[in-house]
Design a protein around this nucleic acid. Structure first.
Length: 417
DNA sequence: TCTGGGGTCCTAGGACCC
DNA sequence: TCTGGGGTCCTAGGACCC
């Protein structure tokens, strides 16, 4: 059995922790660059504010209902997430962190009544972090996700749902749209509708081989998981990434090559941090710069760059990435976004050395380790000068809250009387 | 004035080779 | 002379997730 613990409206709830005056009120959080709505409190959902809608399109609606708007504050969310995960660690020996706001717990060896166990988790996380969570428990991860969905939807569940046997839940599954299944996006949902598959139950009763033939192995696995047959191995979530990307839209359009080089330097730095965190080396990069996809004639320029010798030294990767940008750059375009992908990765050990090139030096390794140590809280205190100091292209975050838990200057004060 | 997220993996199809 | 099987690698595009 697996438990999936998921924070309710995670980013909005994070903001409410330090603004208890906003509990019970409509709150939304925006994506990077204040682009789209990415999190909505329950009250904001009730107002009919759609998910992932561009901010400027719903701005008047938000103002009309006096919805509190926040820019993304990942320093805060990352720290709150770590605290939630630490609490979950008290409940199971193995916590698979699936994303910033959810984790799977393996329930092996848990003898306590599942409903009671789930309630204890909920209460503890609320008590220790003030984060509301929902808990779904089921024989497979896909069913645990579904149970979590039911826990959130049904008031009667009060945040907890346990699916012991799928067949006990067939009646409920007939009423849940197939789109809600983990692994079924809007495209698959549309194609499935063409085959008269509308509900979770409809999908569950399909022949996996038929689904494999019409779609792919992933969706066939999903069908099996819905039937209670576990096919997503625990390791699937822990394995190192096969590719690492860092891409960002700019706060405003960029016209000059130097600024593109600055941005790509910074993204490369971030990508290399992730690379070192999983003890990998990169052999091939992918670099792109592009105009807005909403432009009448969008331009997308990309190239792949093989590295002479696999590395995880930010300086080497930055040098190659900047050269690539200079090669791609075309004058006269309003660039909206750039990114880097580390697309071919190797294990740090054993290192594949080039016949005529010294392998990555010990001094390089030490330097990177020191940088990572200083920057461990994601605040980016140490960086290469090529990132630039005055970043005209940096993202917009007009409604950012303080980093209450990670910056000395932002720690809330207590009034004594 | 103008505004539109970010990350990862899979697969089909083409190029090339034996 | 022309055809044809099968494998590998690469890449762009598609699909998913939160």
């Amino acid at each position: 059995m697996f438990a999936l613990v998921d924070c309710n409206s995670c980013y909005a709830s994070c903001e409410q922790i330090f603004r208890p005056d906003l509990r019970g009120k409509p709150v939304v959080v925006l994506t990077n660059n204040d682009g789209c709505i990415v999190a909505r409190s329950k009250e904001a959902k009730a107002l009919g504010i759609p998910d992932l809608e561009p901010y400027f399109k719903v701005r008047h609606l938000l103002e009309q209902h006096r919805v509190q708007v926040f820019s993304s504050n990942y320093e805060l969310y990352g720290d709150i997430s770590a605290r939630v995960m630490a609490v979950l660690g008290q409940f199971a020996p193995e916590v698979d962190i699936y994303s910033i706001d959810e984790a799977f717990l393996a329930m092996d060896g848990i003898t306590e009544d599942f409903v009671r166990y789930a309630r204890r988790i909920r209460n503890s996380v609320w008590q220790q972090v003030r984060m509301p969570v929902s808990v779904g428990i089921a024989p497979t991860r896909t069913l645990a996700k579904l149970a979590n969905h039911i826990a959130k939807q049904s008031a009667r569940c009060d945040g907890v749902c346990v699916i012991r046997q799928p067949q006990d839940w067939f009646a409920v599954m007939q009423k849940i749209p197939v789109r809600k299944v983990w692994g079924v996006g809007s495209r698959y949902a549309r194609r499935l509708a063409g085959q008269q598959v509308f509900s979770v139950y409809d999908l569950l009763t399909q022949d996996p081989d038929h689904i494999r033939h019409c779609f792919n192995i992933g969706l066939a696995r999903t069908v099996r998981e819905l039937r209670g047959q576990s096919c997503i191995a625990p390791d699937d979530l822990a394995v190192p990434k096969k590719q690492i990307y860092t891409t960002r839209s700019f706060g405003q359009r960029v016209f000059h090559c130097e600024e593109l080089e600055q941005s790509i330097s910074q993204y490369a730095g971030r990508a290399c941090e992730k690379l070192r965190a999983q003890h990998s080396l990169v052999k091939t990069l992918s670099i792109f710069i592009e105009t807005s996809r909403f432009d009448p004639n969008p331009l997308h320029l990309a190239c792949t760059v093989p590295l002479y010798c696999p590395t995880n030294d930010t300086r080497t990767v930055v040098r190659a990435a900047r050269a690539a940008v200079r090669g791609l750059y075309r004058e006269g375009y309003a660039y909206a976004k750039a990114g880097i992908g580390l697309i071919e990765l190797l294990d740090e050990k054993p290192e594949q050395t080039h016949l005529f090139e010294a392998q990555q030096s010990e001094s390089s390794r030490q330097l990177m380790a020191v940088m990572d140590k200083i920057n461990q809280y994601g605040s980016g205190e140490v960086f290469l000068a090529s990132h630039g100091i005055q970043q005209r292209w940096a993202m917009q975050r007009q409604f950012r809250s303080p980093s209450y838990t990670t910056r000395w200057g932002d720690i809330p004060g207590i009034k004594m009387r």
